[in-house]
């Protein structure tokens, strides 16, 4: 099963296993991982699912889409030029079996 590791700003770590085809945002929201809101339900419309992906897994990520690019450009917590992504656009599965992310200080 794909696995996502969430690192909270305070240092706490939560590991979530999920079905293939589920996004990082949905896995977080459905498993009560704090700090990921996912208000628009994954439409790349709210940017409340902002995560900072760990350097070691950056290469395995899908490219940033146009809407994602624009939404990321004005996130609540400052964007990291390399690591910032929308959690709803990262779909777990064979292409992305494992990912580790930092949850930013704020989404709102």
């Amino acid at each position: 099963m794909p696995e996502i590791v969430f690192h909270q700003p305070g240092g706490r770590v939560a590991t979530v296993e999920t079905e293939a085809g589920v996004s990082v945002m949905r896995a977080a929201v459905q498993n009560a991982v704090e700090g990921i809101v996912g208000e628009c339900g994954g439409q790349a419309m709210c940017a409340t699912c902002h995560v900072l992906v760990h350097e070691s897994v950056l290469d395995g990520l899908p490219p940033i889409g146009d809407d994602e690019e624009e939404m990321l450009d004005c996130t609540a917590a400052p964007r990291d030029p390399r690591r910032s992504r929308l959690g709803c656009q990262l779909i777990m599965g064979t292409d992305l079996p494992k990912v580790a992310v930092d949850v930013p200080e704020t989404q709102l």
């Binding site: 700003p9 305070g10 706490r12 009560a32 704090e34 700090g35 450009d73 004005c74 996130t75 609540a76 917590a77 400052p78 949850v103 200080e105 704020t106 989404q107 709102l108």
Partner: peptide, 24 residues
């Protein structure tokens, strides 16, 4: 509009609601 917003309201100036830190 984006450049204007970044210039006039840098993210540090906003009053973000801090995420909860207490363990449940």
């Amino acid at each position: 509009l984006k450049d204007f917003a970044k210039r006039e309201v840098p993210s540090a100036d906003r009053v973000p609601r801090p995420l909860p830190t207490r363990e449940e």
